[in-house]
Design a protein around this nucleic acid. Structure first.
Length: 489
RNA sequence: GGCCAUGUGGCGGAAUGGUUACGCGCCGGUCUGCAAAACCGUUUAUUCGGGUUCGAUUCCCGACGUGGCCUCCA
């Protein structure tokens, strides 16, 4: 089996060859922890979790290192800290914000079925030189200055983009174009408009570290250069993130890392996931369609319902990771139904000891998760439930409890009364208690036996009114008619 | 303005230089007193205009549509 991955740098799909098969190394840009992560943030987390699982399968669990950073130094964090904890000293307030948000993030992505990365370093721990000698930001900046790739101006340290001949290779931008665009902010102290900040000064109120350039804080890009080198070395295998990070973030990471270390490449494969829209529109707070992972999991804000984490995971994986996704209630409903079917069939099934080959083959083709899911449908159709279970486990669909907790929407769309209840947001709690419902069901069975169908249907309609859906069947053993019920939400 | 993606049936979404997967829905059938559920089956598509080719949804050019980046937003 040959793993092939699309590389943004070369813009083609290539066979993946690790630098060291004994230690395959991947870095993915993680969250900036100032607020709840939104559903767009979940996409790279899920996509690269699947890749992580695949790499572990191919090279062995102990031979893959996956680093996902946590950005806990950022001006947005400072703003949030001042707003939420006005009474506290800033640094203390910042820690409260970042710890709370980071914990929430970990809980969110766990619910999405993601394995924890090998390491999750926090940026604040890599600002100053470390006792353990791992790469840090200040040292990296010093190296850049020493090699002539950075300069001080007005208290800032800036990266000199003109000192790097092939700056812009990842995004396909040339320095000349950036000038022609005329949208690039021109700062008098910059040698070139695209030069970017490595270190900036902090006011006494702002968080800061004592550095050779005074008390200040790092620029955005340098943290990833430091933490990737700290855990993965100066050149590693895969670097991932969202499409929007290509420029400037990843471009600048490349500039910093390569120029500081004198290497030809920072990573050998650059992978970027596509964006998502919500119900056909760009997700934004002003449009009111901004939705966080936590809201989907724990509230009824989106589509009037809570959604199990695995439903969100499947909704993310049914589309190829580089394509755009339109995030819709309808899609989540569909995914719920699919998972309901799968889990219903594999509930008490032991997984096969090996992952079905077709699943691995599809995933090895640049993470073709859409074809992979089609393969799972095929397994179910052929009633290969052990293989289905194994494939589901491999993709991170392991629990099912929260999926099976509620019948999916597809099953209720043909029940007019129940649907009306849903759309009117009527209370879903039954007006009758359990015993009364059972009594009514028993009465209806009696009526059916007596072929009094008018009475039988009347009771069925009555129960439907309060959201109880009846299904008639035969007892598989005795052949006796039986009735089961479900709550239409 | 510059750069980068993208356009497949009612919907979602793969693949491919030559019969267009898969899922959801719709419709039909089995079952059922009738429904629902379940199971089985059917139907429908490659944005437009050129070019290359025996043959283009696929490759090339152009148009149009959509989205992203160029503003420390995945």
């Amino acid at each position: 089996m040959e793993l092939r991955l699309y590389d943004t740098m070369t813009r083609d799909k290539r066979v993946f060859t690790p630098i060291d098969a004994g230690n395959v190394r991947m870095y993915v840009c993680g969250p900036t922890v100032y607020d709840f992560a939104h559903i767009g943030n979940a996409r790279p987390v899920i996509v690269f979790d699947v890749l992580f699982r695949l790499l572990r399968h191919i090279y062995g669990d102990q031979h893959v290192t996956y680093v996902r950073n946590i950005t806990d130094v950022d001006d947005k964090i400072n703003d949030r800290a001042l707003r939420d904890y006005p009474g506290l000293p800033l640094n203390e307030a910042i820690r409260k914000v970042t710890e709370k948000t980071a914990d929430q993030f970990q809980a969110d992505v766990k619910a999405l079925g993601c394995l924890p990365p090998t390491v999750q370093p926090r940026a604040t721990e890599f600002v100053l030189p470390r006792p353990d000698g791992k790469t840090d930001m200040v040292t990296l900046i010093q190296q850049l200055i020493a090699r002539g790739h950075a300069y001080e101006a007005e208290g800032e340290v800036l990266f000199d983009t003109q000192s790097m001949p092939d700056y812009g290779a990842l995004s396909g931008r040339k320095l000349e174009d950036q000038q022609a665009g005329a949208r690039v902010a021109v700062d008098a102290h910059k040698k070139h408009p695209t030069d970017f900040v490595l270190w900036k000064q902090s006011s006494p109120e702002e968080p800061g570290w004592d550095s050779p350039w005074g008390r200040g804080r790092p620029g955005w890009h340098i943290e990833c250069s430091a933490m990737s080198a700290a855990y993965l070395g100066t050149t590693f295998d895969i670097h991932g993130g969202g499409l929007d990070l290509i420029f400037p973030h990843h471009e600048n990471e490349i500039a910093q890392s390569r120029c500081a270390h004198g290497t030809h490449a920072m990573a050998n494969y650059w992978m970027h996931n596509g964006f998502l829209q919500v119900e056909g529109e760009k997700m934004s707070k002003s449009l009111g369609n901004f939705v966080t992972i936590n809201e989907l999991l724990a509230t009824e804000k989106f589509g009037g319902d809570k959604w199990a984490g695995e439903i969100l995971r499947l909704a993310m994986l049914r589309t190829h990771y580089r394509s755009p996704i339109d995030w819709t209630v309808k899609a989540l409903d569909e995914c719920h139904k699919v998972l309901w079917d799968w889990y219903t069939d594999v509930q008490d099934v032991e997984p096969s000891p090996t992952v079905p080959a077709e699943v691995l083959n599809f995933l090895s083709d640049d993470l073709n998760t859409a074809n992979t899911i089609a393969a799972l449908h095929g397994l179910r159709k052929r009633k290969s439930f052990s293989d289905l279970r194994a494939a589901m486990n491999f993709l991170g669909f392991t629990d099912g409890g929260s999926v099976l907790a509620r019948r999916p929407a597809g099953a209720r769309t043909n029940v007019p009364t129940a649907t009306a209840k849903v759309s009117s947001n009527a209370p879903t709690v039954s007006a009758l208690d359990d015993e009364q419902i059972e009594t009514l069901i028993a009465l209806r069975l009696e009526a059916r036996k007596a072929r009094n169908f008018a009475e039988s249907d009347r009771i069925r309609d009555q129960l439907l009114e309060i959201g109880v859906v009846l299904k008639d069947g035969k007892d598989p053993q005795t052949g006796e008619p039986i009735t089961t019920r479900e709550i239409a939400r």
